[in-house]
């Protein structure tokens, strides 16, 4: 293995120009893929934040005593999909109502807290925020005695989920095209590299090298090219990301640092490096199959 690895590094040094061009092409292709992933990850995060607004409110026509509150809260949070249930008393409801109608205080003159209903505001776990899941939770809530009304902005939830589905579909479609393009570019670049060195393959076969012996350094070279190319792409992207985060605030109407924008998570970066290595390996393997005939 050490022999093949040494051979692979010597080959890279001996074919420096071709290797730099190959790694550069891989870097460019992987940069575009990583940039897409960065946008996608941040959009997903934004969509998660927006989906926090998917909330169910259940109303009661009377004030609940503390033991009853806690009993109902336990019953509600026991429903699959519910992450949190917060009790809103009549007094708190009035405070919120007043704050919403700030500046129009006269409208609330004479309004007492006991005309308002009490409620539980229910938040859902992320995977239960789709229309079907929300409706399932609503059905179970309706079965709880004492609840007079359940509200969850049915139309808004439906439209919001439709929007999320569309965004995910669009993202997956673009991602799939991008992956195909990257595979095509990387495998063809590696093919050209190997094509330019087919004499080497011929000579090695001529002196009795086994297929494994011929292929091993090329496959390792492919992996190195893939990892170095992807690594360079990620470094470039990280540099641009950092530059944007610390400098773009002067030119755009919001501060990127407090906007919640994040870089690609480490595990995704590792997966991209792995994908780069795999692309390099498969690109080399398929090209070698074409050129090694005996």
């Amino acid at each position: 293995m050490l022999f093949f690895l040494t051979r692979a590094f010597i080959n890279i040094r001996q074919h420096a120009f071709v290797n730099v061009v190959t790694m550069g092409t891989i870097a460019l292709a992987m940069f575009i893929a990583s940039l897409f992933l960065l946008v996608f990850v941040n959009l997903e995060s934004a969509m998660d934040n927006w989906s926090e607004r998917v909330q169910i409110t259940v109303y009661f026509d009377r004030e609940l005593a503390p033991p009853e509150q806690s009993q109902l809260q336990q019953r509600i949070t026991a429903i699959a999909g519910v992450s949190r249930a917060t009790y809103v008393s009549r007094a708190e409801a009035l405070v919120r109502f007043k704050s919403r109608l700030k500046g129009q205080g006269t409208l609330l003159e004479g309004v007492r807290a006991d005309v308002l209903p009490t409620s539980f505001e229910i938040n859902l776990k992320q995977q239960y925020r789709e229309t079907g899941s929300v409706e399932a939770v609503v059905t179970r809530l309706k079965a709880i005695p004492g609840i007079t009304e359940v509200q969850f902005g049915e139309e808004w939830v439906k439209r919001f989920n439709l929007f999320l589905d569309f965004m995910r579909f669009l993202g997956s479609l673009l991602g799939a095209f991008l992956i195909i393009a990257v595979i095509f570019i990387v495998s063809n670049t590696i093919k050209l590299t190997i094509y330019s060195r087919r004499d080497e393959l011929d000579v090695m076969a001529l002196v009795g090298a086994t297929r494994f012996f011929i292929k091993a350094p090329f496959l390792l070279e492919g992996i190195i090219q893939g990892v170095v190319g992807t690594g360079s792409a990620l470094l470039l992207l990280f540099g641009l990301y950092e530059g944007f985060m610390y400098n773009a605030g002067d030119y755009i109407p919001f501060n990127p640092l407090s906007s919640g924008l994040m870089f690609i998570p480490y595990e995704y970066c590792a997966a991209l490096l792995g994908a780069g290595a795999l692309l390099g390996f498969i690109g080399s393997l398929t090209s070698l199959k074409r050129f090694i005939t005996t």
């Binding site: 004499d199 080497e200 011929d202 000579v203 076969a205 001529l206 002196v207 009795g208 090298a209 086994t210 297929r211 005996t294």
Partner: peptide, 21 residues
């Protein structure tokens, strides 16, 4: 195909165009 390298290890070949790397 896997036996071809064994054959070639007992044969040396020289060409007009040398085939050097």
């Amino acid at each position: 195909p896997s036996q071809v390298p064994l054959l070639r290890r007992s044969i040396g070949v020289v060409f007009q165009d040398f085939k050097l790397l």
